[in-house]
Each structure stands twice: as structure tokens, then as C-alpha cells.
Amino acid sequence: MQRTTHFRTGAILFLLPALLLFAAFFLYPVGYVVVVSLLNWDGMSSPGFVGLRNYSALFHDEVFRISIRNNLIWAFAEAFIQVPLAIVVALLLARKPKGWKLLRTIYFFPHVISGIAITMMWGAIYNNERGLLNGFLRLIGLSEWEHNWLGGLGSAFPSVLVYGLLYIGYFMVIILADISSVSQSYYEAASIDGATRTQQDWHITLPLIKGTLATCVTLAMVNGLRQFEQVLLLTGGGPANSTSVLVLYLYKELQNFHYGTANALGTVLIVLGGLVILTVRRLFNAAKYDM
């Protein structure tokens, strides 16, 4: 009896800090975002209830439409370009070619460096006069291809989007770890039947790591919805808002004290994130993917 009360005090004491922080930084904020999205408020004067008007205003707003389109392109590009490339590289490294550990370390390297530093580096690469890209084009005699990559209306968004897609290390590490946990006996049976490595990858490995692939696609798409730093640093959303994304738009609305609109954008982000998670889970029908 004494031990139970003792445990109870200890347990409450030990759980309390985590629960308080969770309440302050997750529960309260999510509630706040939803409630304030229904208000017309500048953060100071008394707020007025406007129902869904902030949302209907957003759907008629050009910048919002561009932002959501860019985020969706980003999410799908990560899911259908970055993740498949990561799968290919993971399958190749799983065959343990010479130096595969070193390659794994190097491929993952860009993900431990801050996004800001990587972005600044690419800003330097895309730079009009001093950049590596134009310098390289000049060098190989293709100076007519030289271009103001981040300033051109057509090239700005692709330039901001593409370079990050080719950093495949993050998903590759997750996928490779799961491939390594597949039992060797499956492959032994298959090679006795004369299946090549590629056939084995396709018919054995991929189906067995379906749950992890679902996780990667989810993470990739949610990541595409969260993109922000690259745009802020490289183009600030321009030219003519063509590179804007939802989080950047949210940040700008917050700076203009449009709390209602900013939180409507926040709600859209949370709902989109939830939709992505549910849809991917359903599509992969991953029974073992339970949380």
C-alpha cells in the first residue's frame, strides 16, 4: 500500500514536466490556431468573429493559390522523385559494394548540416556572375545557356525546388536499415530458383519493406508542405510571388498582424498534413504501420 502511494507521487512528478510542455506547445497552440482562424484580429485590439470568412478570402487569393500549388508540387516531387531515388541507392548499397559504409556516411552528410548553410551555398552556386553553375556553363562553351536562375520567372521555382531533391541520404538510411533486417533465408530460396538480384529486389525486398516505404512517403510529403527556409533565403517568395509557399505566406501574414489569416493558413497546413498521413497509410494499406 505504501509503495503504491509512493509510486503515485513519483509518477506524477516525473510525468508532469513533459505533460506541461506538451500542453503548452502542442495542445494549446493547435486549439489556438483553429479558434483564431475564425476571427478578424490584429493581435491587439478586440477580435471579431468572422466564421469561415478568412478561409473564403484565402481561396480567392492569388498568392495563396500559388503557395498551395508550389507546396503540392514540392510534396509530390519529394514522394515521387526523391524517395524512389533513395530506394534505388539503398538497394544498391544493400548489395554491400566496396566502400558502402563510407558512401552511406557521405550521402547522409547534407542532412546534418543546417538547411540555412546548404541554402546559402546553393544561393552562391546559382549566383548570376560568380556562381558555379553559370561559370561551369561558360567553361564548357555553353555560355548562351547562362541564366539568372533565381531571378527568372520561369526558372526561379524549379531552381529552388530541384537541388534538395537530389540529397537522398535521409530516406536512403531509413530504407537501407530496413532492408538489412530482412531475413537472408528469403534470398537463398530465391537464388536457388534462379532469380537475379534485380528480380529479388523487386519481388522480395520491396514488398517486405512496404511499411517503411509508407513512412518515407509520408515524411517526404509532410516535408514538402513544410518547406520555407530555402524560399525565404533564395528568393523571398519572388519574383512576382512565383516561389511562395504556405509557411512563408503564414510568416508574412503574421508580420502584418493578420492573425486571422495567418492561423487560417496554419489550419490549412495541419489539415493537409493530416490528410497526407491518412491517405498514404490507406494507399499502402500498411497494417504493421501502427503508432
Partner: peptide, 12 residues
């Protein structure tokens, strides 16, 4: 899995 960047205003 909560996109915490959506919570900018309340954190502020």
C-alpha cells in the same frame, strides 16, 4: 507528425 511551423502565431 504535427507540422510545428503551422503553430508560429501561438508560439509567438
Amino acid at each position: 507528425l504535427v507540422p510545428v511551423s503551422a503553430l508560429m502565431v501561438p508560439y509567438f
